[in-house]
Amino acid sequence: MMLWWQLAAIIGGLSTGLLGVYVVGLRMPFLGVGIAHSAMAGGVLAAVAGWPMLPVAVAMSLASGGALAWHASARPRADLGISTGILLSLMMGLAFLGMGMHRGDMTPLLSLLWGSLLFVRPVDVMLMAVLGVVLVAFVARWHRSLDALIFSRPLARAAGVRVSALTTAFLLLASLIVAINLNIVGGLMIYSLLANPAAAAYEVGGSMRAVRVLSCVFGLISTLGGFWIAYLADLPVGACIVIVSTVVYGVALVVARQREVGRGVS
């Protein structure tokens, strides 16, 4: 079982690290928590209705990703951060409404909130691995267009990048990955795995290639480091992963500041 836990930590760290590069680059760090809450809302409502939780959670995540993509296409100048914030608040409301209406065992619902690496099943790990491979292939194929999209939308449009189609494909893939990765840290903490490693990589990376590699490495350090600390000290895994990823970001900030001082930037 230990092998599956570690595999889940490795795949989760790498895929959220790579995904985070574009989530942070698009200035929508709340995407993770917004989509995670959509999955939670779907899961909770499915539990209330007596339906299977995972398919409904995934469907709700995809619907939310699709809605964000539609909004981004219909209003190209819309701030995706604000739309994600509105989505987050709506889904949080729906999730807690469902929890209030639920009369049965709350444990499965709470696991959606907090997650638990220790209860990850082999089938979940394999699903995570497949989605991780899809993500790597997507980025390898479209990295120049994705880089243009996060660097400058006017440049991307003028260069002929199909901005709406690319944004939609990215958001749907991101929704799927977030929903499946909920098992590691849960809906409340997946935000940190998407934001912290990528934000740290942007601080110290000198090119987009370096940012992509560093973000994966920092994601890996966060999940594996958090997992081992939690395992050895008998602490909650999700909390340890969040704390390690925040420490990674802090170290990156210090390194970036030292470099600026070295270059004479006040």
Partner: peptide
């Protein structure tokens, strides 16, 4: 050119982004 200052693209990267599809 409006651009995102967070992105550490080099000059070569930016010229590469402008390539025809």
């Amino acid at each position: 050119l409006e651009h995102n200052p967070l992105v550490p693209a080099t000059v070569a990267d930016v010229v590469g982004m402008a390539m025809p599809a």
